[in-house]
Amino acid sequence: MFSIVLKTYAGLATERHALTVQSHVLKVGFEEDTVLANALIHACARCGSIALSKQAFDKMGSHDIVYWNSMLKAYAMHGQGKEVLQLFSRMDAQPDGTTFVVLLLACSYAGMVEEGTKIFETMSNNHGIAPQPDHYTCMVDILGRAGRISEVKELIVKMLMEPDPVVWSALLGGCRKHGETKLAKLAAVKVKELDPNNSLGYILMSNIFCTDGHFNEARLISREMEGKTVRKEPGLSWIEVVNLLHEFVSRGQQHPEREAICARHE
């Protein structure tokens, strides 16, 4: 029950509620339960308190790979790439594929290109773990963000399996950032072929055209989305004020106190 509640509060990202559940867990003496400890590390990290995640991690006398991965992910979520690598260097458990996904994500978030490249190489060379699509996606993102598009192309060619839509989407994101319109078109076509109902490929390509001033091409993409009934999921944000969660949609008109909020910020 505690685990389910913690997962719920992790989704809502409300620290106050996570703290309440944590206090109950400590009260009934479940703090060393494997499932609960991992749920608590994750929930506290999602709620913005990396210190509480570390506290839950440190309370465990021994750590298996699941604990290590949970704490590594907590640091990665907060963009603390150096802390991730430091914790990894202290691991006394055999890393698995999930460990390396988290390490590569941390390097991507922190812009640690050389470190990410080295980790990707040692994953198979030193640990005997063959790269999976998630690992390739992280590397495409790391190199793409850094503008090393030629290396991304080489990596995709050398993949041990066919690139999936997530890999092509990561490439598309890198192309958008660095103005690689020609390669972006290829990536967008691949995304639409493999996942025709995913709006991401359409949106990123439209943004690239708009950035380049090709507004007619951007309008054609919007019409293509309409013709295929592909819809973009709206971005949401929320904030807790006086024990009440307020949810906002970009340019949304539905919040009951919208006029008062807008008047306050004029």
Rank of each mutant, 00 (worst) to 15 (best):
Y9Q: 06
G11R: 11
E15R: 11
H17L: 14
A18I: 14
V21L: 02
K27L: 15
F30R: 06
A39V: 04
A51L: 13
A51N: 10
K54Q: 15
I65V: 14
V66E: 04
V66N: 00
S70P: 04
M71W: 03
K73G: 05
G79L: 08
Q80Y: 08
E83H: 10
E83G: 00
V84C: 07
M91I: 11
D92E: 15
V101E: 03
V102Q: 05
L103E: 05
L103A: 06
K118M: 12
I119N: 02
E121G: 03
M123T: 05
Q132F: 04
P133D: 03
V140S: 01
D141T: 15
L143I: 05
G144P: 05
I149G: 01
L155Q: 01
M161D: 01
M161E: 14
P165T: 07
V167W: 03
A170W: 06
C175H: 01
R176T: 04
K177V: 10
G179N: 09
E180F: 09
E180Q: 11
L186I: 11
V191Q: 02
D195K: 12
Y202E: 03
N207F: 07
A218F: 01
A218I: 03
R223V: 13
E224C: 03
T229I: 14
P234V: 07
E240L: 13
V242N: 12
Q253I: 15
R258C: 11
A263H: 13
A263N: 14
